[in-house]
Amino acid sequence: MNRINQKIKEDKKLLSIYFTSGYPNLDDTATIIQNLEENGVDMIEIGLPFSDPLADGPTIQASSTQALKNGMTTEVLFNQLKDIRKTVNIPLIIMGYFNPMLQYGIEAFCKKCQDIGIDGLIIPDLPVDVYNEQYKSIFETYGLINIFLITPQTSVERIRFIDSISNGFIYMVSSASVTGSQYGFGAIQTNYFKRIEKMNLNNPQIVGFGISNNDTFMQATQHAKGAIIGSAFIKHLTNKGVDKIGYFAKSILKPNY
């Protein structure tokens, strides 16, 4: 069974962390992943940097620009990850834009992911219908789960459709925004989380965008299976470097840490 599916079965709220590979330093990838797992993080999204990340805000874009300057490429990332399963057991997801994957070759990319032990992919600019018609069978051949996003603007009909072709979880974007543009949730978001919770979807939802500390993590997971942190972690890496990852993870999972 795919590690994502196993993880979803655990009776706990999940913390997933995103980081941009190649940032702050080119060779931090394995260190960051190992530290996150050791400190109780349930799942990791490894960002494959792109020159034009149009769903991301300034924090993740700046980290991507720096990562590319540092020399990160698809090939370099795969090399850095080739032994990662010797030390890491939690689900690993690669998150990236479609063009670099397309240039690598989708089948070659998926095969490499399987060889390494990647469990899933999040590709914000690969539309659901294109995936369904052209790529679904390739992803499945290599045991990869493709994660789709929903937003407060996604229609009920479309959510049902996305649920029907998902296997794993649904990435629930908390508000109409790019990444890192807001922190904290108001009544609008809470009502949206409740509305989705009441739909009783086949796939659990994990909330992303707007989570930065224990408060927002608790709020987000009150009506969802888990939460994803991206920009706040990148900011932490920028300010504190890779040495204080444990502190960051614990501060999310424990109140008043």
Binding site: L54, D125, L126, P127, V128, L149, I150, T151, T154
Partner: peptide, 11 residues
């Protein structure tokens, strides 16, 4: 062509 856009832009 096509519309290779994030879900946030779909509506």
């Amino acid at each position: 062509g096509g519309a290779f856009i994030p879900e946030m832009l779909y509506p």
